[in-house]
Amino acid sequence: MAMNSRTQFPIGGADRTGGANRKKTRKKVVFSIKILTLSALTLYFVFPVAFMLLRSVMTEAEASSVPVAFFPQGFNYQSYVKIFREDYWLYTLNTLKIALINIVTMVFTASLSAYGFARIKFKGRGPLFAVMLATLMLPAAVSQIPLYVLYARFGWIDTHYPFIIPKMFGGGAINIFLIIQFMRSVPKELDEAAEIDGAGVFRRYVQITMPLCVPILIYITVNIFNGAWGDFNTPKVFLQTKSKFTLAMGIYYQSFLGGYQMAFSNLRMAAGVFMTVIPAILFFVFQKRLVEGINIGAVKG
């Protein structure tokens, strides 16, 4: 409301007649108040991250004394050493394996089907697209139980197949949708020109359209990675043996089921920091692409 008075004189010469200085100082004050408020807010949002980092370098004695200090007495990396003694390297390998396979297969099949929807006019395209979108509102819990029974018959329980095989088919409705949205901004003419030149449809998909879709493919790649990396529901249902665990399941196990190993919050937080490192790197490297991707999916969609 403070800015109200300004807009009441939209064209007038009020600026030139001495109000200028007062206005400038007022603007400065308003700006400083804003910066101060923003800084306080930012502090609040940085707080959990700082908490996690600081807690992770505490000793066990520090982390279990009452009251626990916010700042550690020194830099102690023992908790990181310890989590790796607890099979963490194995959980990491398992999770990386799943995530990387998912990236390859999901990007391929999602882009394949997105190309089909966006560039090939075949009969049944509309209904198929509608069905695909409708699966977005299907709760995972509905298919979980029959899939468990089915996978049990395949001998897939306590293996990584449930994480890998289903993802090879379609690659996720939301990813397909995002690529289609992006392809709208990719000129069709290139594709059509290539068709006249006699390029087959698969070649047009690989050589003409996909290279232009790299920005959105990066976005979904990061999303697929983060999805696989942080997935807790699937391992909770399908995994039983410790050696098969993913990181999310490993942390859960160590915190609640395995009991003592992670009883200390410094260990939990070290595991948390470790699990955040790759997503954080991905975010910092691909920041621009990610914001762009969000824009395509959620804002223009």
Partner: peptide
């Protein structure tokens, strides 16, 4: 052909379990 993986996926991993 382009939609084949999706169609198979919808049948095996969505329609059947539902």
């Amino acid at each position: 052909l382009f939609e084949l993986p999706l169609i198979l996926g919808l049948i095996i991993f969505t329609a059947y379990p539902v």
